[in-house]
Design a protein around this nucleic acid. Structure first.
Length: 525
RNA sequence: GGGUCUAUGGCUCAGCCAGGUAGAGCACCGGACUCUUAAUCCGGCUGUCGAGGGUUCGAAUCCCUCUAGACCCGCCA
C-alpha cells in the first residue's frame, strides 16, 4: 500500500525509472542515454513544441538523478529539410514561391538567420536557452549531408516494399506500397514535396520525377524534371514514417516523447526501428496537444500561437517550466490568462518547499517538493525569494505608469507584501507591468460622466490643483453633489487607470502628483 | 472509419498514473482593519466526484459498458 516514492515522486521520475528498467532488461549500457526532441522548423514554435523538448530534458535530469552511473543528453533535432507546406499567418505572401522547398533552403524573411528554417528553430532554441536547458543541436541538413543516416537509409529502401505493406496494414495509408519513403530535392526546381521515387537503384541512388503535389489542399507545381539522386549526400530525406527510426538507430536514441497527432507515425517507426534496423525503439510517452482557450488546437500556421516568447514576456521561466512539468497527461487548454496563475503557483510551491512541516500526506508533499526542484532544473535556490502576488502587481502596475518599478516597489513595502527588494521583485514588476500594459483595462466599463458626477469631478480637479488633500476634496464634492463616495471612487479609478478599482487613492495621488491627476481628470471630461 | 483525452462546489480546476475521511483559488456571506473603494487578515457556505455495473475490507482513483463534449489520424510533416 505504501509504495516507496520513486526518485522525486513526479511522473518524470516514474518515466525515467521505467526507462532504466527497460534498458537493463535489454542489457544496454546506461553510460550515455540520449533523449530526443524534434524541433520542427516550418512554423513559429509554440508552447507545445517547447514542451516536447523541455519534458525530454526533464527525463534526462531524472535519469542522471536516479542512477549515479548514468549520463544523459538531450538531442534537439531540427527538421529543417522538411518542406514548407503553408505560409504561416502574418508572414509575407512572397514566401508562396518557396512552398514545397526545404525550409533550410528558403531565405529568412526576417533576415537574421541563414534560412527560414534556421530562424524558426532558432526561436525555439532561444527559449530553451532562456529556460536554462542544455541540449546538443543537430540540423537535418547537416546530418544528411554528413551521411549520418546512410546505413539506415540503405536498409530502409532495400526493404521498402515490406515497409509499405506494413504501413498500409497499421495506418491504412497505401501510398508507400508503390512509392519509396524517400524524397529527393528536385535538382531543377529545388522542391522536395513534389518528387516521387519509384525505384531504388543498387548504387545508392534513386530515380525520381518532379510532379505536381497536393499539400494541405493546395497544389504545389512540380517542374517535370526526371533524374537520379544520391541518397547519402544531403540531397533529400526519408519520409517521416521511417525517418524517426533512422535517427533513433543512428544516434542510439533511448527516449522520445510524442504528441498524439503523430501516434501512427511513431507506431510505424517503432516497427521499422526494431524489425528493419535492429534497434529496439526508444521508450515513449504520449502527450495531448496544447489547445487554446477556445479548445482548438494550437497550430503553427494559423494565428493563434502561444509562443514561448509570449509567455516569457509576462511570466517567469519557472512558471513556464511549471506549466510543462506539472503533468503530461490530459488535454491542456492554455492561454496568456494562465500566466498569472502559474507564476503564483510557483510561489505557492516555494512556500511549501521551504515550510518546516510537510503536512500529513508525505507522498504528496514529496511530489510537490520534486516538482519545485524540477521547476528549478534540480538546482533549487537555497532560500525563498520575495514573490508578491501577480494580480496585485498587475493592479499596481496599471496605477503607476511612470517610474513604475520605484512606485510599485514602495507600495509593496508599505503593504508589507515584501520585506526586501531583490532581483525577483524587479523581475516580477517588469513582467506584470508588461501584462498590465498589454491586457490592461480593456474590459473595464466606460465611466458614466453625467451631470452631478461631471460637476463633482471638475470640483475635485480644481481642489487638487488648489492643494486640497485628495481625501477632503473627494468627500466634500460627494456631499455637495449628493453622490455616494463609493461611486466617486469607482469613477475616479476608471478615469485615472481604466480599472474599476485600484490602490488607495489619496496615497496614489500623493505619489503621482495632484496636478497630474487633476489634468487626467479634466482630460476625460 | 480508427484513436486519444475530458467530465469533481456557482465558476476555473487540483486530487486519479502507485486505492485509505473530497480539496484549492475565485465568487458569495459574516467579522477585523481601513479613507463607505481596493488590498490584507480571520471565520463560514457551497458536492448524487457524468450514468451504470465490476474488483476490493475500502473506489473520485483500478476494470468493463454507456452518455456528452473536445481533439487527433485516415494529405504531409
Amino acid at each position: 500500500m505504501n509504495k516507496e516514492t520513486i526518485g522525486r515522486g513526479t511522473w518524470i521520475d516514474k518515466l525515467a525509472s521505467e526507462l532504466v528498467a527497460r534498458e537493463k532488461k535489454l542489457g544496454r549500457s546506461l553510460e550515455m542515454i540520449r533523449v530526443e526532441s524534434g524541433l520542427g522548423a516550418s512554423g513559429i514554435p509554440h508552447i507545445g513544441s517547447l514542451g516536447d523538448a523541455v519534458r525530454a530534458y526533464g527525463v534526462k535530469m531524472a535519469l542522471e538523478d536516479l542512477d549515479p552511473g548514468c549520463r544523459a543528453e538531450l538531442i534537439a533535432y531540427s527538421d529543417d529539410l522538411d518542406g514548407l507546406r503553408k505560409v504561416p499567418a502574418g508572414f509575407d505572401e512572397s514566401l508562396n514561391e518557396h512552398l514545397g522547398k526545404p525550409v533550410s533552403a528558403i531565405p529568412d524573411p526576417s533576415g537574421c538567420h541563414d534560412s527560414y528554417g534556421a530562424h524558426m528553430s532558432g526561436m525555439l532554441l532561444e527559449s530553451l536557452d532562456a529556460l536554462g536547458i542544455k541540449y546538443t543541436h543537430i540540423r537535418a541538413r547537416d546530418a544528411y549531408s554528413q551521411g549520418m543516416f546512410a546505413e539506415q537509409t540503405a536498409k530502409i529502401l532495400e526493404s521498402a516494399s515490406r515497409i509499405g505493406e506494413h504501413i498500409s496494414e497499421i495506418t491504412g495509408q497505401t501510398k508507400f506500397r508503390t512509392v519509396m519513403p524517400y524524397y529527393p530535392i528536385c535538382a531543377q526546381c529545388g522542391k522536395i514535396y513534389t518528387t516521387v521515387v519509384k525505384e531504388y537503384l543498387d548504387d545508392g541512388r534513386v530515380s525520381y520525377v518532379c510532379n505536381d503535389a497536393v499539400i494541405g489542399g493546395k497544389k504545389i507545381a512540380g517542374c517535370g524534371h526526371a533524374a537520379e539522386s544520391d541518397v547519402t549526400g544531403g540531397a533529400g530525406k526519408l519520409a517521416w514514417k521511417v525517418e524517426f527510426a533512422a535517427r533513433w538507430a543512428a544516434l542510439d536514441v533511448r527516449f522520445e516523447a510524442f504528441g498524439k497527432d503523430i501516434m501512427d507515425s511513431v507506431a510505424v517507426n517503432d516497427w521499422v526501428s526494431e524489425n528493419i534496423l535492429g534497434h529496439p525503439p526508444p521508450h515513449h510517452v504520449k502527450y495531448e496537444m496544447f489547445l487554446d482557450r477556445a479548445g482548438t488546437k494550437i497550430s503553427k500556421s494559423s494565428g493563434n500561437v502561444l509562443t514561448p516568447q509570449t509567455w516569457l514576456r509576462y511570466g517567469t521561466p519557472e512558471s513556464l517550466l511549471l506549466l510543462l512539468y506539472k503533468r503530461i497527461t490530459g488535454a491542456r487548454r492554455v492561454g496568456v490568462e494562465d500566466i498569472p496563475l502559474l507564476v503564483d503557483e510557483v510561489a505557492q510551491l516555494e512556500a511549501q518547499y521551504f515550510a518546516k512541516d510537510s503536512g500529513s500526506n508525505r507522498e504528496k508533499a514529496a511530489r510537490l517538493r520534486g516538482l519545485y526542484e524540477y521547476v528549478h532544473l534540480l538546482s533549487p535556490p537555497p532560500k525563498p525569494a520575495e514573490r508578491p502576488p501577480y494580480s496585485l502587481l498587475v493592479e499596481l502596475a496599471r496605477a503607476f505608469q511612470d517610474e513604475r518599478e520605484e512606485h510599485v516597489t514602495r507600495r509593496l513595502l508599505e503593504y508589507g507584501t515584501i520585506k526586501d527588494v531583490d532581483k525577483t521583485v524587479s523581475e516580477y514588476v517588469r513582467l506584470a507591468g508588461n501584462y498590465a500594459d498589454d491586457y490592461g483595462g480593456s474590459d473595464a466599463p466606460k465611466p458614466d460622466l453625467d451631470g452631478p458626477m461631471r460637476r463633482a469631478l471638475v470640483e475635485i480637479a480644481d481642489a487638487l490643483d488648489a492643494g486640497t488633500a485628495a481625501q477632503d476634496a473627494i468627500k466634500s464634492s460627494a456631499q455637495k453633489n449628493d453622490i455616494q463616495t463609493r461611486d466617486i471612487f469607482r469613477t475616479l479609478y476608471l478615469v485615472i487607470m481604466a480599472a474599476p478599482s485600484g490602490p488607495r487613492l489619496s496615497k496614489f495621488i500623493e505619489d503621482v502628483g495632484a496636478g497630474r491627476v487633476a489634468a487626467k481628470i479634466r482630460g476625460s471630461l
